[in-house]
Design a protein around this nucleic acid. Sequence first.
DNA 1: GTGTATGCAAACAATTTGCACGGAC
DNA 2: GTCCGTGCAAATTGTTTGCATACAC
Lengths: 152, 152
Amino acid sequence: MKSTEIKQEVRIIFKRYLEEHKHRKTPERFAILDEIYNSKGHFDVEALYVQMKNKKYRVSRATLYNTIDLLLACNLIRKHQFGKNMAQFEPSYTNSQHDHIIFTDSGEVQEFCDPRLQLIKKSLEDALGIKILHHSLNFYAVKIDEIESEKD
Amino acid sequence: MKSTEIKQEVRIIFKRYLEEHKHRKTPERFAILDEIYNSKGHFDVEALYVQMKNKKYRVSRATLYNTIDLLLACNLIRKHQFGKNMAQFEPSYTNSQHDHIIFTDSGEVQEFCDPRLQLIKKSLEDALGIKILHHSLNFYAVKIDEIESEKD
DNA sequence: GTGTATGCAAACAATTTGCACGGAC
DNA sequence: GTCCGTGCAAATTGTTTGCATACAC
């Protein structure tokens, strides 16, 4: 699916969600959605705020937080809490579930997916009689070659 | 190992750590360590503060945070970030590595350990040429019988 | 005696809330 | 015309910092 098609599609999903829940379809809300789906990748609220400020659009942080809640509710973005003050979001449409490796020195985030996690999840659900709603798996790592070069 | 032996042991480890790093062995620091190892289980800073206040001991939050940093540094406690404002700690001596299931309705935390996680970790390290320092795996779940009873 | 650790209160950063105005309906 | 959503600034929460005093060394 082309990038322009995706952007079109998520606007429709958002529009439908807002209508169904009797929320107003304000230009701010669609501008924020556009901005998020224009850049892809992970972002935090402050970065999004600055990014939109630098472009044409002027939104308050309050509106960003408000809209992000709506986008989370209709599953157009996902939230990740990488650490106390390291909340990040990412667009989730046509973007399959995955987990994260956070490089502790640079803050860089890399995605991965390992099917064995689903086996662990299934085992737990069966063994404990629970329903797992979602999960968070983060590995905090450093790159080997960077360890080597630090030895100089 | 008996509970009293553990408490004795961790005091010795902490004492050694403080000496090696030229930190003072203040009564507050040992009182905090004792309090943590008296109750075991997960705790957050506020709960620890209230708990100590209710007993004999009067410590400031600043000292709690300071001491917790020291205890983290010498691996006598572990920190878990279950959500933005849900940082919890737990004593880690004679307490093997494990992961957590957080029940989203009650906030209850249950521990589990699945060896397959180590396989995932190993695969990633080998495939990507990285060294994983630590990880965080949390499942957010509800109990099945509670789902059923909600249907009433 | 020196200088680090403490308690307190003020500072902080990320998020939230309250309020008056503006625009979606 | 209603009243929800906005921008702004003030409030809030968990944590950190600054400063004067206390006490470990």
